[in-house]
Amino acid sequence: MSGPTLRTLFLAATLAFSAHAIADDDPRIERQDLMKSVREAAKPVGQMMRGDMDFDADTLMSSLETWLDVSTKFGGLFPPGSESGEETEAAPAIWTDREGFDKALAEWQTATQAAIDAKPASLEEARPIVGPVFNTCKGCHDNYRIEEE
């Protein structure tokens, strides 16, 4: 293949990729997808806490890592112009009280990091460490998320 053809192909591929990326990059969708992954990670942890599933330190650790990862990305997904549409449940308070929102994010991150550092090895050890993490989920939703029916 000649140089120009290759270059054209490459260019087309790049363009196609970035067009795709733009659609996928909608911060409203991206942040909802992140929260969905947070929910999936929470399910097995909740089942362990309820005693419906045997305690498993690795599963717990992997959920905590997911939350820690999301907590570092989530705050960057609320640019101006993303306040509404795409069924977002983000509350206006995120933009009017950014300081409080960042604090809620930091609380989540701190509680999650503390749980990781504690390396709980049994349900009895995990309960008092996981509870505070779950409370930070509710604390943030209470102020910065509105639930649509």
């Binding site: 929910r39 999936e40 929470a42 909740g46 779950f134 989920c137 209470d142 509105i146 639930e147």
Partner: peptide
Amino acid sequence: ESGFTPDFDTVGG
């Protein structure tokens, strides 16, 4: 007790 639904959404409103 926890404020979480079975599919792990949180209580609201």
